[in-house]
Write a protein that binds this DNA or RNA. Structure first.
Lengths: 198, 198
DNA sequence: GACTTGACCGGAGGCAGCCTCCGTTTTAAG
DNA sequence: CTTAAAACGGAGGCTGCCTCCGGTCAAGTC
């Protein structure tokens, strides 16, 4: 994974330092004001010029994808916890909840995520991670279907969309946690096989 | 309803003309590029200066609310059709579908609608119409619950949120109609009482 | 330790959109 | 026709996006 040692020249020290500073500043700004944060402000807080930011991350999506990388690893860790459950139904439920939290990391995150799925061109650095999440969701759905806990008509993509939607509503700030819980319950009773196991 | 004749001065002719031109231009732009359209471009197309647009509609939301007024009347008309059904379950279903279409009028419309519900201050001209739609949805839900076609735990606001969400996903353009149909089915089987009438 | 070289940096600046002041024009009324 | 209030619209300040391009700095060389 780390085998990049094929260049004659060693990577410059300031490059990595700047990149790290940019990522940190970007994360702070995204947390405070959402994914629409001013990139110039991010650069200034990182102590670099605008051009340096754009050289490291050509688009807002590229910066966002790099910042999300950290959180993405948390998701993988969650998957290992979930794998210990054994119960496919509970696993699906917890995975959907983890997805929703991931999508809620920054205000306004759902928009670029949906845009990344729309544009099938791979120039969007968010497309690949999104496709992986969709595939993973589908695996959980299939497992739950095999165990008879999910309707056969449901696809992983559907529940992925549902999770993004809930995150979008949560991020819009118009709704209290109680309403969100009712919405989650509605979705759950929508995909569950209704043989009523408990 | 039209009794505004209490001013000594007749309203100026150019005011109404400009207002109409602005609304028409705004609708065209909203349809073409979404609610984020450049207001300067709208003003230019309407043949007025930027200041005139802002005098008539102090905020983007005010302009949006005025443009939506027309569509809102269509929704009222739909309600009359729906009232003829008699079947509370089918009425709720059709109302939700009408809501979703209304929310899909322009790309990006769901965002300001959610923001209008968030800010409880009445300075947002979208807040009032939204609250009315939520109340109407709740009436349909209650009727369906009385007929035993909807779970008692479901609130009108929940299904309002669900309709906005579907419209948001549709507007993001990342999804084909087939996926949207599965999503709608998921929501429906989520709020329906499961005694399986058909 | 000084030199070379190429990768890297960052400020300046063009562009677009938002919004507002204020001098000018239009309009209804007398 | 005169008048005065109401409305108009261009100019301009502001912010953010993104890109040149001349200067700078670090890695490798002697």
């Amino acid at each position: 994974m780390g085998a990049k040692g094929q260049q004659g020249r060693k990577p410059r020290a300031d490059v990595q330092r700047n990149r790290a500073a940019l990522l940190e500043a970007a994360q702070r700004h995204f947390l405070r004001v959402g994914v629409g944060a001013s990139l110039e402000a991010v650069a200034k807080e990182a102590g670099v010029g605008p051009a340096t930011l754009y050289r490291h991350f050509p688009t807002r999506e590229a910066l966002l994808a790099a910042v999300l990388q950290t959180r993405s690893e948390e998701l993988v860790a969650r998957q290992e916890d979930i794998a210990l459950l054994g119960d496919a139904s509970e696993a699906l439920r917890q995975w959907l909840r983890a997805l929703e939290e991931y999508f809620s990391a920054f205000s306004g995150l759902p928009e670029p995520l949906m845009a990344a799925v729309r544009e099938r061109e791979p120039d969007n650095p968010l497309t690949l991670p999104c496709d992986e999440l969709i595939a993973t969701t589908d695996e959980y759905v299939r497992a739950a279907q095999l165990a008879g806990h999910a309707r056969p008509s449901v696809k992983g993509y559907d529940l992925y969309l549902a999770a993004v939607s809930v995150a979008w509503i949560k991020g819009s700030g118009a709704t209290d946690e109680e309403s969100l819980d009712r919405l989650r319950a509605l979705i759950e009773s929508g995909y569950r096989e209704q043989d009523g196991e408990e």
